[in-house]
Nucleic acid binder design. Structure first.
Lengths: 197, 197
DNA sequence: GTCTATACGCAGATAGAC
DNA sequence: GTCTATCTGCGTATAGAC
């Protein structure tokens, strides 16, 4: 499935980057032509329209997310530590978040209002995280309903941090908030090891 | 300054609504023509381009925000209660937030990436709230730095709630989170009256 | 598979009559 | 101030040659 160097894959990678950095609407096929060096015709040979490119990107992102999450599942046993690892993702991505916002949040914002189809395509990215976070809270003995609520709340917290960091272009805010959020998690749900980090 | 029924004002109101509900890029001049019943030429007579319309809208929103905030200043004396009133704005707007997201957050998301000029125009809306919230925390005897940090954190929380509510189209999440947020504020900073609400 | 060339529609902006 | 008509550029999508 992973065709590292095929033309199709190159287009997908480039589009993924540009859609994130410039937005979906603001990125034209011409931009993809410039960035890939391919011809316009070649691109439409591989994807019949822009929506198909987006679908390919979402597929790619979904497998990336799945890989990341199962990697964390492998490396980390404690649910609390997993939640904390999730928060640390913001730190890992702080430069991108500051400049371009959350890759999921910003693309959803573009589609949710006026592109129901594209919106539907993008929803699963959010759901992946929601589901995984819910699992962690269930491991902490919350009821399914409460676990799901906590998962959404944590997602909400990180989305808020991403928005403010991006709007005010202020990375230091992100660092402070993630630090506080991690402490809050470890205080609330145990594991004081991570409090000292 | 407030020309209630002039053509210019009508255009502004319509554009404000459509930009919010559909997004700036997705709204065409033709849409404004349909919605206002005016001619294309008439619209461009009052605003020479789309950007000018946006500038007008932001001005309108800024005065609206100012009015709301000074209204709250008049009605409410306790800083904590003011913070709580701010959170309750989410409840007041729950239907819109669910359907269209935060009016500031979503429009900023559209501009921050690829429209530096429009981004600059929109920033003051966020700043208004940040400044006002900071004032409240200063009244609670926080240092200016800490007050500003708390203000951003509260803004961040509400933005996160708005994003998740919109993405998952889930108003009940908003209600739960605002309830918790209000309690958190009153517990942290006093005023247990509001805890009972 | 990859390219060039072209068609088509739409949005934004302009000109000019009333 | 308001309208109709037109121009121009751009973005997507298509057709066809190599």
């Amino acid at each position: 499935m992973k065709q590292g160097n095929t033309t199709k894959f190159r287009i997908l990678e480039t589009a993924n980057k540009l859609f994130y950095q410039q937005g979906f609407h603001a990125t034209s096929i011409a931009n993809l032509v410039d960035e890939t060096g391919l011809s316009k015709g070649n691109i439409t040979y591989h994807f019949k329209n822009k929506q198909e490119i987006l679908e390919g990107i979402v597929q790619k992102r979904l497998t990336d997310i799945d890989e990341t999450l199962s990697q964390w599942d492998k490396e980390i046993s404690s649910p609390v530590e997993k939640l904390i690892r999730f928060c640390e993702m913001l730190i890992d991505e702080q430069d991108n978040l500051e400049q371009y916002g959350c890759p999921m949040g910003t693309i959803m914002g573009e589609f949710s209002k006026n592109q129901p189809t594209l919106y539907q395509i993008s929803i699963p990215m959010f759901k992946r995280f929601k589901t995984w976070l819910t699992e962690q809270f269930e491991s902490l003995n919350f009821t399914p309903e409460k676990a799901s609520e906590n998962a959404l709340e944590l997602l909400s917290r990180t989305q808020g941090i991403a928005v403010i960091t991006h709007v005010f272009m202020d990375k230091s805010f992100l660092k402070k908030e993630v630090f506080k959020l991690k402490n809050e998690l470890s205080e609330k749900y145990g594991t004081f090891n991570s409090k000292l980090k």
